[in-house]
Amino acid sequence: MLEFLQQLINGLSLGAIYALIALGYTMVYGIIMLINFAHGDIMMVGAYVGFFSIAVLGSNIFAALIFAMLSCAVLGVLIEKIAYKPLRNSSRIAALITAIGVSLFLEYFTLFLLTPQQRVFPEAAFPLHKYQIGGLLISNKDIFIFALAVILMIALQYIIKRTRTGKAMRAVSLDREAAILMGISVDRTISITFAIGSSLAAAAGVMIGIYYNTINPLMGIIPGLKAFVAAVLGGIGIIPGAMVGGFLMGILETMVSGYGSTLYRDAVAFGVLILILLVKPTGLFGKDTGEKV
């Protein structure tokens, strides 16, 4: 039982990271129906910005976090403007290929610029403390990641539910034509969605840096895919779904590594994906909508 609780705690911080990335996938899908394959790589860029601001500029973890989030917000908006916007009226598959192209670009440009070498996140920025609570081992990293993720999610919920921008986002994802008629600027709303989604990914990137200690240019691929599975699990396009899906994926993954084989760790994510798609393709929180004839 204790072992189980320990795995649960480990899973919660990993799940929080997945949930943050999954939110970006879901928001973008909700608004422009695009699987933004580059999202995991935006997370990677965030991790690097965080790394450099700590290692080179010597900033503390919070400044690094804010810096990473701001830069990735800009990056996300730029990507949308340059690569996705021209394809808004083209086929979905053309947009998907473009997203794959952007993803490869971010990965290999970083690789070209910074070499494939792994970087170790500076220990000094976040000194590790471990606490023993009733036989359970909890580190300040876990607490920090979990708390920060929850704060960001609450902030996101506030933006979406309470602000004009959030209302515009919901309106555009519900019915773009109607939103235009109501005087909502669709371009601006899509930009804001990318900005918010990308900054959440950047925060997740810095967290991964803290969680795994090392970062590299291809680090975005696997967590990106898993977070994407999390988004599908919760029901793609549905924000609370992404949060729940993220936590479930994180917990499941630590459970499988803890009790089973690490070799199958990655297969589990895809197994879950297939299972959910075959049983309820719209995800845990999704509603079925039939096609109109």
Partner: peptide, 28 residues
């Protein structure tokens, strides 16, 4: 047979998932 019931993006990610599962199985 099971996946082709899905449409569009859902089919895309299901086939992506199966492709990866094949790889992981071969690995093991």
């Amino acid at each position: 047979v099971p996946t082709l019931r899905l449409k569009g993006d859902y089919l895309a990610i299901a086939t992506l998932g199966f492709g990866e599962i094949i790889r992981v199985i071969l690995q093991n």
